[in-house]
Measured scan of single mutants.
Amino acid sequence: MQRVNMIMAESPGLITICLLGYLLSAECTVFLDHENANKILNRPKRYNSGKLEEFVQGNLERECMEEKCSFEEAREVFENTERTTEFWKQYVDGDQCESNPCLNGGSCKDDINSYECWCPFGFEGKNCELDVTCNIKNGRCEQFCKNSADNKVVCSCTEGYRLAENQKSCEPAVPFPCGRVSVSQTSKLTRAETVFPDVDYVNSTEAETILDNITQSTQSFNDFTRVVGGEDAKPGQFPWQVVLNGKVDAFCGGSIVNEKWIVTAAHCVETGVKITVVAGEHNIEETEHTEQKRNVIRIIPHHNYNAAINKYNHDIALLELDEPLVLNSYVTPICIADKEYTNIFLKFGSGYVSGWGRVFHKGRSALVLQYLRVPLVDRATCLRSTKFTIYNNMFCAGFHEGGRDSCQGDSGGPHVTEVEGTSFLTGIISWGEECAMKGKYGIYTKVSRYVNWIKEKTKLT
């Protein structure tokens, strides 16, 4: 034993070699072989497995989906700052455009905790909710729209109204504003409101030439003092309507412009014939205590009207009353817009006519005020429907199939267009061939041609 100890002390290297040989010859039971080890760690190889990531292109799944990435790591994937920024906006807080917040056709661009709407022409605001041009839906104005110097929408209202708090709607500024039905039992019968379409306001006024200088022999019209197929109006439903009495009662109609003036057809009036105007009328054979009678003290036909040349060209006249009318729910003026808007309103496509005229061709006159909704007829169809001249200051309205029309005794009465609950004068009943005849239409004086003249002559002093 002493000898062994001496050998170990003198030859430590020998001992180490012996131990190493023993270990190498022993069977290893701690580690699995290569094949079995792979069965336990069965993990798919990654895209760049075996390579240094710093030297390969980034992978979106590896960089940002398996674990949260930084902007720089995302930049490695896209290799483009702009594309990385677009991805980053949604990656950080989701897609803010998912709810489609942009209105009126706006395009949404996502941002971090926010979004941006790219608005089409005519709109602005956070969600493109603000109209900035009158060309689109009248700028959301209830009545009139004008573009300011910086191309912003400025709404306005006709006389007797003021802008509401929203700067879009119009509200009454006087007790009985024009064009409004205020009798409670008839307010439910107000005709369907007309909503502004998209309009090209630059070209809204037709490029028409008034044929002022045409000389033409007097034409022989049949029954051209021209509501057939209409309905009984309720008291106060058309408070701007008046009836004219002269040699015979209810020979023509008219509309209240203001307390002192009536507008009617020029062919209705004769110099030297006494005319009485009755406002607030409903049943011409009954006294309903809503009527107001006034005498006409002055007749002003349009300066281009000449019955000797043509009885229905420039067929418009103004009547001055001896005493002002007292405005109330049964006696209310009709609204008159400017030339541009009167023309736009007419193009809405349908209007209402009213009167006490004959209820059928050569038949009896109506006792109760009649009204009828009539569609506008395109000019080409209008011209083809008659052998008589249709001037540019006239328009056609009615039904091709016949059966409904204005008729004798309705002449001078109103053709009105309702705009968001307020009625505007767009025409004056003038003439036609018979009444409600198939293929024939009622012919009306186009008020847009005469609004400046009306307003100039009827100013209240």
Rank of each mutant, 00 (worst) to 15 (best):
C141I: 00
V4E: 12
K446A: 09
V181H: 10
F121E: 14
G94K: 11
R449V: 15
P239I: 01
A173V: 14
G122E: 09
D131M: 13
F31C: 07
P197T: 13
G402L: 12
T422F: 03
T158S: 09
F399K: 05
N113H: 10
W88R: 03
N258F: 02
C69M: 01
V419T: 05
N310P: 04
E456P: 03
V77L: 10
L19C: 10
Y450E: 00
G236L: 05
S169A: 13
S187T: 15
V181P: 14
G402E: 15
E67N: 02
N295Y: 07
N452S: 14
D150N: 13
E165N: 13
C18A: 15
N295V: 08
G442W: 05
K293I: 07
I454N: 01
A317S: 04
W240E: 00
K126W: 09
A436N: 14
H282S: 11
Q143M: 11
L319Y: 02
G253E: 04
K168C: 05
C119S: 02
L369W: 08
T215H: 06
N313G: 06
I297V: 09
T417L: 01
Q143W: 01
D200K: 11
D110P: 14
C155M: 01
F123H: 11
S423A: 11
D150M: 10
T458P: 01
N36V: 12
G105Q: 10
F395C: 02
A26K: 02
N245R: 13
E27P: 03
V153R: 10
N147D: 11
Q237K: 05
N138C: 03
S156N: 07
Y22E: 04
G58M: 03
S169I: 05
E434M: 12
G229N: 08
A164Q: 08
G412D: 03
Q237P: 08
R364E: 15
D378E: 10
G349H: 08
V419L: 06
A192V: 13
A436H: 12
V227E: 15
C134N: 03
N452D: 15
K51R: 10
I7K: 12
D95E: 08
E433N: 15
S430D: 02
M65S: 04
R404A: 10
E270A: 11
L372V: 12
E86F: 05
V92C: 07
R62T: 04
N151D: 11
E82Q: 10
V269N: 01
V326W: 07
N313V: 10
C145P: 00
N295R: 11
P175I: 06
Y22V: 07
E142A: 08
E420S: 14
Q185N: 11
T29A: 09
V195Q: 15
R180D: 02
I136F: 14
I112V: 15
N306M: 06
S329H: 09
N38L: 11
D198P: 11
H303I: 06
T458G: 03
Y312M: 09
L383P: 03
P101V: 06
C119T: 02
A337S: 03
E82P: 05
G229K: 14
K247R: 12
L460F: 10
R298F: 03
L163K: 04
S169K: 08
L367S: 11
R379F: 10
T287H: 05
K455G: 04
V353R: 08
P172E: 06
G229D: 12
S220K: 12
N283F: 10
E72T: 05
K109Q: 11
I210H: 11
F31M: 13
E66P: 00
N138L: 07
S365I: 09
V377N: 02
Q2D: 11
F78H: 07
I284C: 05
K440Y: 08
S156W: 14
I17E: 02
Y352I: 14
E208V: 09
D322V: 03
E340A: 11
T381W: 06
L20H: 02
C396D: 01
L367N: 14
K455L: 07
L60N: 02
V77G: 04
